[in-house]
């Protein structure tokens, strides 16, 4: 099968959907002629024109608030935040308006807004360009939150996001953008709330997010050689969360570790842990464990930045510890 990078796969989905639906438009800083800081819209300005590829002034609150009104009146905005950290300037428009309007109108209005941006540390951009924030949005009723990790998932989930009538956060980890993988040429969708089992195993269930998936996968053989069989799950979508898939796996292994670069307190790992304990306390042979980055801003200098993200040796150690409990 044909290989694409993660970015190419997401871009192919966006281009195909823009061809299919003339009401989709993209707003962002540098997404017009420049084609996006992360090449998210390369070539689109020539293809779709200036009204559908609209460079904005630097006013996230303004253009996100604008998207609410646009979605209420029949068009389908895509906001390209470049770095997702910038979304915080528009938080009120998201939490108080975009997330609530379908409910407050009893479904008479739809809210098809895709909010995309790059998350995560590891690229030396320091603390205003390295956050993840997905747990904040998964906490709020009204949002779909997806964190694809492969080119295949990036295309399928982008297509699903663009066809959804709900607001969707589509979060792309910077370290994944240039990774390559098999991507079908035809269009396809991946339902929200459907996890992927990346590796089957018997001893420990690991739920990993974003680049933690490949980092965990990289230590699984070594652990297997040491007699620890890991079942690795990529939730792909945090809201809705496929707790069923996680529960089924934990029912087999009796052990659960959640690995997430983002903050631990009130994070997605805490939620997964609570759901699994509420549902299957008796299935657990050990406490649910979490491995997160530290609860602090992301620093710049490479050794500091590296210390702000779970690394393979820590992942392997956390799995060994849990297997021994």
């Amino acid at each position: 099968m044909r290989e694409l990078t993660y970015t190419e796969a997401a871009r192919e989905a966006l281009g195909a959907e823009m061809e299919r639906d003339p009401n989709i438009f993209v707003l962002g800083e540098g997404i017009g002629k420049r084609g996006g800081n992360f090449n998210t819209t390369t070539g689109f300005f020539e293809r779709f024109g200036p009204r559908r590829l609209r460079d904005t002034p630097i006013c996230e609150r303004g253009f996100v608030g604008l998207c609410a009104g646009a979605a209420m009146t029949g068009t389908r905005p895509v906001v390209d935040f470049m770095f997702i950290d910038f979304i915080l300037d528009s938080f009120g428009e998201l939490a108080n308006q975009i997330a609530k309007i379908q409910y407050m109108t009893s479904g008479r209005l739809k809210m098809p807004v895709v909010l995309r941006g790059c998350i995560g540390a590891g690229s030396g951009h320091a603390t205003h360009h390295s956050g993840s924030y997905y747990s904040i949005f998964a906490h709020l009723p009204g949002f779909r939150v997806v964190v694809p990790t492969t080119p295949y998932d990036a295309k399928g989930l982008m297509t699903t996001s663009l066809r959804s009538d709900d607001p969707v956060l589509f979060l792309e980890h910077k370290s994944l953008l240039n990774t390559r993988g098999d991507v079908p040429e035809d269009d396809y969708t991946i339902p929200f709330g459907q996890a992927r089992v990346c590796r089957e195993g018997d001893d420990v269930t690991v739920v990993a997010l974003g680049p933690m998936v490949s980092k965990t996968l990289a230590v699984c053989d070594e652990l297997a050689a040491a007699g620890i069989s890991v079942e690795l799950i990529d939730p792909r979508s945090l809201a809705p969360l496929d707790s069923e898939a996680i529960f089924l796996s934990v029912s087999q292994t009796g052990r659960l570790l959640i690995i997430d670069e983002a903050f631990g307190p009130c994070g997605i790992g805490a939620e997964i842990s609570a759901q699994i304990m509420e549902r299957g306390f008796d299935q657990l042979d050990a406490p649910v464990r979490r491995l997160n980055g530290p609860h602090g801003p992301t620093p710049f200098s490479p050794p500091l930045e590296s210390a702000a993200v779970p690394q393979p040796e820590q992942i392997a150690q956390a799995i060994r510890n849990l297997a021994a409990e």
Partner: peptide
């Protein structure tokens, strides 16, 4: 902002 978006 929403009125601006409807204008859009």
């Amino acid at each position: 902002l929403q009125a601006t978006g409807a204008g859009y």
